[in-house]
Design a binder for these strands. Structure first.
Length: 589
RNA sequence: GCGCCCAUAGCUCAACUGGAUAGAGCAACUGCCUUCUAAGCAGUAGGUCGGGGGUUCGAGUCCCUCUGGGCGUACCA
């Protein structure tokens, strides 16, 4: 369908230019970007709509007259452009009706031929894109906020790869700093050498427990903070005992976090540790100072002045010469580029850091790094609770593993009440996949930039506009295809586009043909939500159709075979799209 | 104070990036399992797109302003 769209657009553009010449108007006044092809609000109006408002002024004639004029030229010599059946003029709109069998046949061919690659493109061919996301701290396990971050990062990476890019996903693990020392201190003073195994806890939860214990400790012992700070100093000095404890606890934390990644289908090509890079920015700052990009205050601290572009002054090196958060980010970016030169670098980080990234990117540009203009902050909104922000101190943080366990349990319960244990087979595995489907769809469906409210009671539904609904649609198609073997008169027949004559089928064909366009749009805007909403639309449209028309048992076996073929296309689009959103595909549920 | 973001049905979110009568789900009510999985389908009800002004042939979408909310503005990360 894309082919037809492109051809049609060219044709209309050409017609407009010719008409302009005839009317003595400068053809240059006809701009291609004013020409758009849209979907009409109602299918009866047409398959494609071309609004001609923007050109009415240039031609100095009413829009409806212009659309008639263009329509006549389109029909010239009684032959319409390929794929176009007829057109209809509704006021200022030129509405196009496509040749249904032609579009349908094209979809059949593409979906079968390309299979798991259907929807892919070379939009980002030969582009190297680095995607940084997750970035956990090693003092506590992952929470719901990380899950949104991970879902976005993983999905964007998959979509970009599918669109031809060479993608490298990176996890920058924040494994040093005062907050790490806090859990270390609590463990040292209260842990009595126990291990996660001793307490039967997942290792990152074990570490997290001591972070909570620290906060309790600090409440009754005001000097705890001093001891934690002293520990950080010792850590920086390389004190062997502190380093040993640090390594032990970090290992626990990271091992546990990696298990959660595995569970949720998150993959990283590279892990960076802040402990290894946090000093790197320092020399860059000193270089910048020499070049006169930064300046030194009387107390020895080094600053950058960004007031000329509406930002503030920012400290880059403390008066004692130690580095800050921005400093390490400067260093990390530079060493990453050296290590793996990229065309684009995407930081998936919550919107609370918008300011930070503005500052970071500006500094890198001023330091003279050409690639700095290719850095992109993929900012996303916070995940809040109905009561407000999640706060670890108040214990309102929604733990990632607990949430998944809870969802899995709900899915199991659902399978049991529907009495589908036998058909499903491995209930544990299926329930877990349903849980992941629900979670990832829930997190990816809203626009990234928006804050979302997570209501534990209502948000975790499996019906309606949810991940499991999409999974269910796929599972039903699979189930139907399994039964196809029993229907001998249909089984060996090839589907043909000409047997599909219902409006519902045509709606499906148009929608499915749009899949590559939706993927491209999601890729170029780094926005998986477009894809998520699209998959829901596909599921919805198919469910309606499936309810309305028999497929396997259609009276005419040729019609049945063609409907099966269409269902296979739906399945392929769902499968490919679900992969891109990291929603597990299920043959049975 | 200043900067950035957000405001659409009771609730949670869409709206093809400025196009035709603003759509879904949840919750409520009503139907549909002797036919391919009822995690489904169909229907009823629910809206001055936060208020006001402007730009435009056309504004939920762009600009200004006010109101309400979030985030930031650390020699924290």
């Amino acid at each position: 369908m894309v082919v037809f769209k492109v051809q049609l657009k060219q044709k209309i553009f050409q017609i407009l230019k010719e008409q302009a010449k005839k009317s003595g108007i400068d053809p240059e006044a006809i701009r291609e970007e004013d020409l758009s092809i849209e979907n009409p609000p109602k299918p009866e109006l047409g398959d494609l709509a071309i609004p001609l408002f923007p050109f009415a002024k240039v031609f100095r004639m009413p829009p409806h007259a212009l659309s008639s004029l263009v329509g006549e030229s389109l029909q010239q010599g009684a032959s319409l452009p390929e794929g176009v059946d007829r057109f209809n003029i509704v006021g200022p709109y030129l509405n196009i009706f496509l040749n249904r069998p032609m579009v349908t046949e094209l979809l059949f061919q593409q979906a079968v031929k390309e299979g798991d690659r259907f929807g892919s493109s070379d939009l980002f061919r030969s582009k190297r894109i680095m995607v940084e996301f997750s970035s956990p701290n090693t003092n506590k396990p992952l929470h719901l906020g990380h899950l949104r971050n991970d879902a976005l990062g993983e999905s964007v990476a998959r979509i970009l790869r599918f669109s031809g890019a060479t993608v490298r996903t990176v996890d920058l693990i924040n494994d040093r700093g005062i907050h790490i020392c806090k859990s270390m201190l609590a463990y040292k003073e209260l842990g009595q050498g126990r291990t996660p195994e001793d307490e039967g806890l997942k290792s990152d939860h074990f570490v997290g427990k001591y972070y909570v214990l620290y906060n309790e400790l600090a409440k009754r012992d005001p000097e705890a903070e001093d001891r934690a700070r002293a520990m950080l100093v010792k850590w920086e000095q390389g004190d062997p005992e502190v380093r040993l404890l640090w390594e032990k606890m970090n290992q626990w934390a990271i091992e546990g976090i990696k298990r959660t990644y595995e569970r949720t289908g998150i993959h990283f090509d590279q892990f960076n540790f802040e402990s290894e890079v946090y000093l790197k920015g320092k020399e860059e700052v000193l270089k910048g100072l020499e070049k006169g990009i930064f300046y030194r205050e009387a107390d020895g601290s080094i600053w950058v002045n960004l007031e000329d572009i509406g930002l503030d002054r920012k400290v880059l090196l403390r008066s004692d010469g130690t580095s800050l958060y921005v400093t390490q980010d400067i260093g990390t970016a530079i060493s990453r580029y050296k290590d793996w030169p990229f065309d684009t670098m995407i930081y998936v980080v919550a919107s609370e850091q918008n300011y930070h990234f503005k500052v970071l990117f500006t500094i890198l540009e001023r330091l003279g790094y050409e690639w700095a203009k290719n850095l992109y902050h993929l900012s996303y909104g916070m995940v809040n609770l109905p009561e407000g922000k999640m706060k670890s101190r108040e214990g309102t943080v929604v733990d990632a593993d607990d949430l998944l366990d809870e969802l899995t349990e709900m899915a199991k319960e659902e399978i049991r009440t529907k009495e589908r244990e036998e058909e499903v087979g491995n209930i544990d595995e299926t329930a877990e996949k349903i849980a992941l489907g629900a979670l990832h769809y829930y997190l990816l469906q809203p626009s990234p930039s928006k804050d979302i409210v997570f209501n534990p009671k209502e948000s975790l539904s499996f019906t309606g506009n949810t991940g499991p609904y999409i999974q269910y649609t796929g599972a039903r198609i699979c189930s139907m295809l399994r039964k196809l073997n029993g229907v001998t008169q249909v089984k060996d027949r090839n589907g043909k586009a000409t047997y599909l004559n219902t409006t519902e089928e045509w709606e499906l064909v148009k929608l499915l043909s749009d899949f590559p366009v939706v993927v491209e749009l999601s890729a170029s805007s780094y926005n998986p939500s477009l894809l998520a909403n699209y998959l829901y639309e596909v599921s919805k449209t198919f469910s309606r159709y499936y309810h309305e028309h028999p497929i396997l048992y259609a009276e005419d076996p040729d019609v049945a075979a063609s409907r099966v073929q269409l269902s296979r296309c739906v399945l392929q689009v769902l499968k490919n799209g679900m992969y891109l959103l990291n929603i597990p595909f299920l043959e049975v549920m």
